[in-house]
Each structure stands twice: as structure tokens, then as C-alpha cells.
Design a protein around this nucleic acid. Sequence first.
DNA 1: CTTGCATGTCCACCACTGTGGACATACGCT
DNA 2: AGCGTATGTCCACAGTGGTGGACATGCAAG
Lengths: 209, 209
Amino acid sequence: MTEDAPAAAGSARTQAPAGARKRDAAATRAAILRAAREAFTERGYDGAGVREIAGAAGVDTRLISRYFGSKEGLFAEVVDIAYEKSLLMTPELNEEAARALLLGMDKAASDGLLLTLRSAANPRAAAVMRESIERNYQRRLADALPGAEATGRASLLIAICAGVLLDRMLLGHTALNSPSTETLVPYLRAALDAVAKAPEEEGKPGEEA
Amino acid sequence: MTEDAPAAAGSARTQAPAGARKRDAAATRAAILRAAREAFTERGYDGAGVREIAGAAGVDTRLISRYFGSKEGLFAEVVDIAYEKSLLMTPELNEEAARALLLGMDKAASDGLLLTLRSAANPRAAAVMRESIERNYQRRLADALPGAEATGRASLLIAICAGVLLDRMLLGHTALNSPSTETLVPYLRAALDAVAKAPEEEGKPGEEA
DNA sequence: CTTGCATGTCCACCACTGTGGACATACGCT
DNA sequence: AGCGTATGTCCACAGTGGTGGACATGCAAG
């Protein structure tokens, strides 16, 4: 009770086999985390219940409270993990980023954004995610961006990607899920480029019609 | 019970004063709709409860069931109304659209998207919104877009706007809510232009780095 | 005025949510 | 081997969610 991460606090026996052991806190934690990631990604913060998560993980509901303090604590850890391996939009990667967003199946890469979309309605969850995004994702992306105002532009890029994912995955926009969706790739890439590239090295973004 | 809109079915007395009348089905419906729009926009489909909505409207909870069938029915009507006066992104309006999205206060215009964002987590609500977006918003926008693949590009534009709103309003991204946010306007406009403008009249969207 | 119908009001139900304390068990150390 | 302690398991609570049927009421027509 004195700490939140008993698994990390276990001094000598932390190196458990992590296999099908029954009495392994680390494995239990991992199982909960895994189930929670799936549940939160699919149903959102409000939609996913602790009983459901615990059930999917094959553990008791109480373990969640014990290990993560609360549902919100669990969510925070899930969010942090999800954003560690998120899609990156650098000027060089915009083509494949656009392709991945519009046609893409790279579930791992889009999990972070998807998680965000599904849970954004809850203010508590939104705060947790904002903090995590700014700390992990946005900062990493800003470092990869050339030119000035990198942080703001990184946020813009994230926003654009999130929006596309929103329409495609959540709303199920038919126009974004049809065979002709591939036609849209260059447009999306152009939009990403407009933000990702430094203003100098493109044809000046502010070009009037 | 035979129809969903008893107000429209009211033959002779439909022309009620709509004032502070107590016995006016049309006014009651309108009040519920108004309260529901606010509640759904602020808390999302799952977050807003029928009791809360009825309370805000000053009516009884049962009226919602009676007039709209269910919470979902009420939501569907709210969504339809919200998208009637939504932000439009045409090539000529991208500047102000970008400004409105990043700095904007035009609550009425962004209500539709905001509503969508906050309720997208619920699959039922998502389906309702997708249908409404495609029927109202996207189609209207596609008609205003020049060039080919207008429908897909309209979806893309909607997605981008939704994403920006998501980061700004829901997540509360600090980078998108700071004084320097104005600096990002040209970037966002460029991104919108890249999609809204016909490929020919711009400098070819697919320009490699 | 009386009657018929729509309009509004109350109740309760059942399902489900997240959270907490007390107890049995198995592992690791001595 | 025995013990300590972490690890896992159980129930119950209080609160809230949406939904439905039976009753009182006011308006309009006969």
C-alpha cells in the first residue's frame, strides 16, 4: 500500500518467469495492462469497465484497485504505453503516414490516437491524455520537425491525424473507407507537408488563391 | 405512438404561441431539443443523462421517451439540427475557417463537430452521426468543392477540422491554446488549401521533399 | 356542460458502475 | 520445515443509467 508499483518494488524476485505463473505480480500487472489497452482502445474510458478488463485479463477486479489505485491510474499507464510507439509524421514520412492513416492497418501505431479519440469525451481522461501526449508524443514529434514553431506544428499534425482516424475508424465514413480512398492519399500528404515542412523549403504556405 | 413527431401531427392547434405555455407539445419538444443539444455537446452521448436533459429543459423525464422514443432517437434529432449550420470550408473560406478553428469562438458553427467528438466513442451514436454527416454536412461541402474526388476531399476536410477541434477543445492542448497559436493559422490554412483546392490550381499537391 | 384525447407527472424496476476491507493461499526466505 | 508476507479471492455498498405503466390534468370538440 505504500507504493503504487509493487512489482517494481519486489526486490529479488522481480525476475519472475512471466510465463503462465499464477503467483506473479509482474505478469498480472502486464496482463491487466494488456487487457486494459484493448478495452480502452475499443470502448473508450467510459465504455470500458474494470470488471470487463479484469475478466479479460483473467484476474480479479480487486487487483486493479490494488495495483493501479483506481481506474484512472490504470488508464494513465495505458495511455503512456500507447504513445510510446505512435505514428510519427516527419516530412520524410508523410507519404507513408498518409497512406497508413487512410488505408492503414498498422494497429499498434494508431492505437494511441484511437485511444485518445474514444476517451476524449471524459474530462478526466482527456487531462490524462493531454499530459501524456505533450510529454511523449508531441515533444518527440516537435524534435523531429524542422523550422520554427515546431511544437505548435506538431500539435497540428497530431490533430490532423487524429481527425482522419476519427472519421475513418470511429465514424466509419464511407468516403474514407471505399476503394477510392487511395485517391485521397496525395491530398492528405499535401496537407501534412504543409504543416510539417518548414515554411521556407516549401512554396510558402500562405499562398493566396 | 403511431408517429414520432406528434407536434407536426397536431392538426389544428399546431400554431401554439410557443411562449411560456405549459400545455404545448411543440414548445416542450423544442425545449428538450435545446437542452439536449447543450448537454450532448458538453458531455457527449454517454456523459449526458436523460434526467439531466429533462431537468434542464424543465420537463419530466418521461416526455423524452414519449416524444423521441429513446435517448438515441433524441440524439439523432439533435445531430441533424447541429449539422445544419456547421462550419463550411471552401477554398475561399479557408483563411477564416483556420482562424475560427484555432482561435475561434463561433460556438454555433463548431457545435456539430464538437458534438461528434464528444460522442464518437459510442458506436450507436457514431453510426447516427456518420449518417447525418454524410447526408447533411459532407454532401453540402462536397458540392462547394471544385475538382474531382470532391466527396472524399470533403471528408478529409471535415476530418482535419474535427481533429483540430479535438485537440483544442477536448484535450486542451496547451500548444493550441497559447498566444502563439495565431502563428499556426497559416499552416492550418495551407493544409486546408491542400485538400480544398483542386489539384490543378495549386502547385501540384504531391511535391516531394 | 360533459366527454374524449392528448399532455404532463409520478413511481419503481433492473442492470451496471467503481470502490473498499477481511480472509485464504502460495511463494520466498531463514 | 516453519514462518512471514505478498498475492489473489470474495461480498457488499451506494450511486446512477435508461426505460416502462398507471394516474391526474387541461384543451378541444360534441
